[in-house]
Design a protein around this nucleic acid. Structure first.
Lengths: 131, 131
DNA sequence: AGAACTGTATTACTCAAGTAGTACGGTTTG
DNA sequence: CAAACCGTACTACTTGAGTAATACAGTTCT
């Protein structure tokens, strides 16, 4: 059973996206495995104090990605394999990186300076998170 | 006079932000200089086929940043100096980079791989833009 | 079969962002 | 001073995203 005990909703991002990302990250990190049973829409929504359709929105997107399988009336399960996980990992990274490199270029920065800044910021944020 | 002839609005981003970024990038790139006169809200809005208040929204934000100066009834002018431009450049880069490094870390990637991917994507996008 | 679950489709409510309409008051220039 | 500009404040409309309410249909298990 996919474990939602560590899931905490936080303001600033739609709840259905938080659920989506929680499962995607779990799949990439390996804490969620192929064949794992998912809590039902109703159970999870009650747990989070939200509407079942909000959970459904996340689950539907996951199904479109092929990460879960739902049969009408029955429970839903994760359907992961090495290829899907690898592909998912790449797609998560790709979306993030494309968004940033585009934004950075528009400021007129060159690649070398961009890499240098990212190198520096990476460590600065690591420090922030320790506090 | 700040030149908007190369300004094209495109879907997917609010127009007032496109105007804001156009001027900020112009200031950083040096194509917009201190003392440059801005087109009036009405003139620019007529040029773009939008409402004067949409232009005003961008200009008000620029004024709050100290990049332009507006006197009620009179025209508006750029108020730039080296410090402001440098600060603006850093703030643009900072926002972009923080957003990306945060997103990347959440996927569980390490710094070395992130830098390698960005290095690669940077060149790939350059190719895209040539087409 | 029937109770208790499951997923799903349709519709509607809420809220904030983006944009527009309108009116008011200040500045400039003849 | 008056016409023609200018910036600005206030209000209202529109749209889409996010979420919820409700109803329907399929599965499971005793």
């Amino acid at each position: 059973m996919v474990d939602f005990s560590s899931f905490k909703t936080e303001a600033g991002m739609p709840i259905y996206l938080q659920i989506l990302y929680f499962i995607e990250r779990g799949a990439v990190a390996g804490t969620i495995a192929d064949g794992d049973e998912l809590p039902s829409r109703r159970v999870l929504s009650a747990l989070l104090g939200i509407n079942p359709n909000t959970v459904q929105k996340a689950f539907r997107l996951l199904e479109e990605e092929g990460l879960i399988e739902s049969r009408s009336g029955a429970k839903s399960f994760m359907t992961l394999d090495a290829d899907k996980i690898s592909e998912l990992r790449v797609s998560l990274l790709t979306a993030d990186i494309r968004g940033l490199t585009g934004a950075l270029k528009r400021t007129g920065i060159d690649k070398a300076e961009a890499l240098r800044l990212i190198d520096r910021f990476w460590d600065e944020e690591a420090r922030d998170e320790e506090v």
